[in-house]
Design a protein around this nucleic acid. Structure first.
Lengths: 146, 146
DNA sequence: CTTGCACCTTAGAATCATTCCAATTTGTTG
DNA sequence: CAACAAATTGGAATGATTCTAAGGTGCAAG
């Protein structure tokens, strides 16, 4: 069998994180996570399905949805939504914003200083207690590097 | 005919704004807009439909969708999305953020200083040109006044 | 081991919001 | 009034996601 190119690309934290939640590590979950880490272009469930299928031809779309949901529950992946479009998935765990390119339809991560998120929460009127902030930009990006 | 209670609640700018876009003012459009202005609780299309129907029993859901879309096009109303839930509609045109109460499911407007929006855009890396920013909080609100 | 059982995966049906479509209705303009 | 464009309508169609029921899988206790 081939070797080098098949090694798991993720930091092996998956099995652990899953176990922490009383869940099992399965080939499907590993592969879905791998696919997200390998090409971080915020794929939809369908896109993940397409990327995963060649390696695991028997996998079903329902399972891809299940795996993605599981990864989100375990805080290994974030679900990203934009205007009723299909949900996209992002393995970037640092707090960051998203930029939606209106021309290409691509989604880019935008790192913002941690202080900004704090500042935003501090602007809330009294009585509002936020445990998450989401920031989304829409516009045009000089899509050079891709 | 009755008078006081039936007077249009909106600032009569509707017909004008529509005309600006080469569109007609219709009873359906007026009423949908009225409903949004009257109870600013970010209703879904279904909810708007329910509120509009008693006054115009023949109206169809498709028309409500059409009217809402038209109002959004004319910049009289904003469409607000949260995690793949049904689109909600908001006649507040000032730049503001939204707070989603995880307990009640309600959506609240949150006014933020204009400078914050500017600051956010200025944080974008070079090459990114945003023409809109969306800020969404999720958390718990002391739902007192409603 | 081998049986039990909880967890997983699977295919396909079901759901839900929204959009599309083709047929009327309405309004305006010549 | 006639002709045409813009709007509305009900129902069918779409697309993403979730549900359901039926098999797999794999560890754990005996």
């Amino acid at each position: 069998m081939a070797t080098a190119t098949q090694a798991p690309r993720h930091p092996a934290g998956l099995a652990q994180k899953l176990a922490d939640s009383g869940l099992r590590s399965t080939p499907q979950r590993e592969l879905v996570y791998d696919v997200l880490l390998t090409k971080r272009d915020h794929p939809t469930a369908d896109e993940v399905f397409a990327r995963v299928k060649p390696e695991l031809p028997g996998i079903s779309l329902a399972t891809v949805y299940n795996c993605l949901e599981t990864l989100v529950q375990c805080d290994l992946v974030r679900a990203v939504n934009f205007e009723r479009g299909p949900t996209r998935y992002c393995p970037n765990l640092r707090p960051h914003a998203h930029f939606h390119d209106e021309v290409t339809g691509q989604t880019h991560d935008v790192d913002l200083p941690e202080t900004l998120f704090a500042k935003l929460k501090s602007e809330l009127p009294p009585g509002f207690d936020a445990n998450a902030v989401e920031i989304t930009f829409r516009g045009k990006a000089q899509s050079s590097a891709n």
